[in-house]
Design a protein around this nucleic acid. Structure first.
Lengths: 119, 119
DNA sequence: CGATTATTTCGATAGCTGTCTATGTCTTCG
DNA sequence: CGAAGACATAGACAGCTATCGAAATAATCG
């Protein structure tokens, strides 16, 4: 694969800077951030993120996750792929199982962009 | 229209409670929150939100907004409608102009849900 | 009232997306 | 090696969505 040496996930590239309401978002930045939100903007993926993020040890394998849904395994796999490729989930294969781990920093900086924390 | 007396926008209904990583999101709540994120998960709408939220006086009329994009005016109107119907933008007509105002509380609680603020 | 201007609504279309079944890959176990 | 299990990929399909141009609505102005 012919990629640059420094590989940044979409989440890493998009996370930064001042919140939405401080100054107008540049077009470029909007196009970086939108895919992240799009990845999160699905009920199944939201729950997947939440399940992984709140799971013991900070990670969960697909087998832990699939049972929580009334969906086929490939569909879950698809959603996990979307979350992984957007940089919101890390993936690691250990033996037969694949473990996913939430990138909490990505979530935090997304949150920081959308709105200042409520006080 | 035959609606309940207490009318809550999607944003108001969805905004609440503990963040994603504290405990698994219920299916019902995921289905409330996802449409909000979906509304935000478009580069044009992200910029629209940002333009409105950061505009002088906290509000902006369509005429202020449309020029920032290389899109037809009906398209802008469509995106504003999506943001309005999801509860992220308030709308008020004054004379010939329609003014939009960001619901910062909706943004804040969305942010609070996605991730705890970075420290 | 008629013209003009700001904005929305309508109808159409191309492209994206969530889901499924079927199949492939990889690892472990006997 | 061969079978079984965990997960990913491929291909198909229905439903959604971003966009446009055309037309409707609504307010102002002469």
């Amino acid at each position: 694969m012919s990629k640059s040496l420094v590989v940044l996930s979409p989440a890493e590239t998009a996370a930064c800077c001042s919140p939405l309401s401080r100054e107008p978002l540049s077009r470029a930045r909007a196009e970086q951030v939108a895919p992240l939100l799009k990845a999160l903007a699905d009920p199944v993926r939201l729950r997947l993120m939440s399940l992984v993020a709140s799971h013991a040890g900070g990670e969960a394998c697909v087998c832990d996750l699939a049972d929580a849904f009334d969906l086929s395994q490939p569909t879950i796999s698809h959603h996990l792929k979307v979350l992984h490729e957007s940089g919101l989930l890390d993936r690691e294969k250990r033996g037969v199982w694949v473990y996913y781990r939430a990138r909490t920093t990505a979530l935090s900086s997304l949150a920081a962009l959308i709105g200042d924390p409520v006080r």
